[in-house]
């Protein structure tokens, strides 16, 4: 059998199970770009933006995201830069930073690295040592990374922070919020950014509708150099169990993740009036935007004696 692409009759390299479409690498690339550009327009992800910061880890999603969104930004004459957070994970992060730097250079963009060590006085490895267990590594890493991305994006003068979150990440987060019983967080989720504050750089997730497998295919078909390693702390995260569950469901019933996410988006839109009073204020300790008196980053840093 020599299956052909449904669009150009070139050799089929990928079968998109949810649509029943066969793609060669070139037609897949065209189709994915069109899909992401359409979502960017529909969700006004870079509408009215003058300056974008791309959060790039050097992994498959952020590098693909930069490659897809960069031409749009260039056509609209938007100022763009790449920001990488160095959490300080021995044997892992440096490989990603190399790829992020290379991706920034390929696009002719300014490249910035901001490190936990510089910002908080300790890298993630030493925070884990202080905790005595890697079980909460992803909680600390995620919260501190988001805090830094926002602060640095703002200080770089950007009005939009673009991240490479894909459909898998978003479906996992939605299910995690349901499992944790966090309706307020669920109500704040969705393609649009609802809370605003003068210190909060609005975030955009152009790959929100794209499965992780497709972002990696995009990288391979386009010869993009990405870091394929997995974080040594990731195995301890509960998200892993949720990811495995969703992948098994998707395997049996393609489109499950996207229909689940769109259902949750509709539910969160319905739930929004219940949390309409939620306002962002400045953290009493660091001054960064937060929903409580003290932001989560300061709480976590305080718990390991770094504040």
């Amino acid at each position: 059998m020599n299956a052909r692409c449904d669009f150009c009759s070139g050799k089929a390299r990928y079968f998109q199970r949810h649509s029943g479409t066969r793609f060669c690498g070139r037609c897949f690339t065209k189709s994915l770009r069109r899909r992401v550009w359409r979502d960017i327009g529909r969700n006004r992800i870079i509408a009215d933006s003058r300056s974008i910061v791309f959060a790039v880890s050097g992994g498959k999603d952020s590098v693909a995201c930069l490659d897809i969104v960069h031409p749009l930004g260039k056509a609209r004459k938007i100022q763009m830069a790449v920001l990488t957070i160095d959490e300080g994970i021995r044997g892992y992060r440096s490989e990603g930073i190399k790829r992020a730097r290379k991706a920034a250079k390929a696009g002719g963009l300014e490249f910035h690295v901001a490190s936990f060590k510089q910002e908080f006085g300790a890298d993630l490895d030493s925070i884990i040592e202080r905790l005595g267990s890697p079980k909460k590594a992803c909680t600390y890493c995620g919260v501190l990374r988001r805090w830094m991305l926002n602060k640095w994006a703002r200080e770089l003068g950007s009005d939009r922070l673009i991240t490479g979150h894909n459909l898998d990440d978003e479906a996992e987060s939605a299910l995690l919020n349901l499992i944790r019983g966090d309706p307020a967080r669920l109500a704040r989720s969705g393609p649009e950014y609802l809370l605003s504050h003068r210190k909060l750089v609005p975030r955009g997730k152009p790959l929100r509708g794209v499965p992780g497998k497709e972002t990696l295919l995009y990288d391979i078909f386009n010869g993009l150099d990405v870091h394929l390693g997995s974080c040594p702390y990731a195995e301890f995260d509960f998200r892993n169990a949720v990811r495995g569950f969703l992948n098994r469901v998707e395997e049996d019933r393609p489109t499950s993740k996207s229909s689940f996410l769109s259902t949750v988006d509709r539910m969160s839109a319905q739930a929004r009036p219940l949390f309409a009073g939620t306002k962002l204020v400045e953290c009493s300790k660091c001054g960064e935007p937060t929903v409580g008196a003290e932001c989560k980053a300061c709480q976590l840093l305080g718990s390991v004696g770094l504040l």
Binding site: A3, R13, R17, L217, I220, R248, E250, E251
Partner: peptide, 15 residues
């Protein structure tokens, strides 16, 4: 699971 792997042969992605 097909969802979790990309398969390559002779340096090319295979369906």
């Amino acid at each position: 699971m097909r969802e979790e792997f990309i398969v390559m042969a002779k340096g090319r992605v295979v369906a």
